[in-house]
């Protein structure tokens, strides 16, 4: 092969860069023109950007946080405010209606009710589902919100109070009650008897008359003579099949008497606000257990 034929340099008037490595040279093609123009364009764009948007840090800046503000005075906080006001205005009509309607009346207004349930559902998923389950099904130590058994009451009013101020929370209006550890007072024997009696109550069998006396003496003040519970103290109903800790077997009941467990529910009023709580109340009520 004739090397001169293979040398592009001689076939083209482009020329080389002048660099040479072991006889290998490099053609000196210019950058494509479209590329050059776009490159220059981006520089111009950047200058415009500095002018319009916040860009440069300012050394002296005693009046400005961060740097230059740009003529549009754009900040992410303003953008947030705008996008929030957009969604708020979309919700405003229903939200305003919701604010001016008592929770009881919402139940009679199909559209507003739908709005409240949907809003409540999403707030529930984010804030409540971690303990009560995503469908309100509850977990050990956290009540099922679907059933008809309520510790503190399942009416709209009671639900609202529970969600707002919580149970044994830091809030000053919180619901509060403590079951005292009774083992020391009662003695081991009597704890076993009462446990068996209570387990029987739950199963509907009254044959275990043993322990009834101790129960009446120690427990009935809060849990009721027949184990019907008392919502003023949040004392659970003992005569039904629904148990917060375990399945209502004797050992469970015994351990609860010896060292009582107490659930805590945070107060949500400062975190979520009246409107969201109203929606949550309607949603929880709609799960089927509302009273």
């Amino acid at each position: 092969m004739n090397p001169s034929n293979n040398n592009i340099e001689t076939q083209d008037d482009i020329g080389t860069t002048g660099h040479e490595w072991d006889g290998i040279t490099e053609l000196n093609y210019p950058c494509p023109r479209w590329w050059v123009w776009i490159f220059l364009g981006t520089i111009v764009w950047a200058v415009g950007y500095w002018y319009i948007y916040p860009a440069w840090p300012v050394i002296s800046g005693d009046s400005e946080r961060g740097g230059t503000k740009g003529v549009m005075e754009w900040t992410q906080y303003k953008q947030l405010e705008e996008s929030q006001s957009e969604i708020f205005s979309r919700r405003a009509e229903n939200l305003e209606k919701l604010q001016n309607t008592s929770t009881k009346d919402v139940m009679d207004m199909p559209e507003l009710y739908e709005f409240a349930v949907v809003g409540g559902k999403s707030a529930f998923k984010e804030n409540c589902a971690q303990c009560h389950g995503s469908g309100g099904g509850g977990a050990k130590g956290y009540p099922n919100l679907n059933d008809d058994d309520w510790l503190w009451g399942g009416s709209l009013k009671e639900l609202s109070k529970t969600i707002k101020y919580g149970i044994r929370s830091d809030h000053k209006n919180t619901r509060n009650s403590v079951m005292p550890p009774l083992a020391a007072v009662m003695g081991k024997d009597s704890v076993t008897k009462v446990s068996r009696y209570v387990a029987g109550l739950s199963k509907g069998s009254s044959s275990t008359a043993e322990g009834a006396k101790e129960y009446k003496q120690m427990c009935s003040a809060c849990h009721g003579v027949n184990g019907e519970g008392n919502r003023i103290f949040g004392a659970p109903k003992l005569s039904d099949g629904i148990w917060l800790y375990g399945k209502g077997d004797e050992q469970q009941i015994e351990s609860q008497i010896k060292s009582p467990q107490h659930g805590v529910m945070p107060a949500w009023i400062d975190r979520l606000g009246e409107d969201t709580i109203k929606q949550l109340v309607v949603y929880v009520y709609s799960l089927g257990g509302g009273e």
């Binding site: 389950g133 995503s134 469908g135 309100g136 099904g137 099922n144 679907n146 059933d147 008809d148 058994d149 109903k237 039904d240 099949g241 629904i242 089927g288 257990g289």
Partner: peptide, 8 residues
């Protein structure tokens, strides 16, 4: 969710 609920 829940697929059924046990009542009291």
């Amino acid at each position: 969710n829940p697929i059924f609920v046990e009542l009291s």
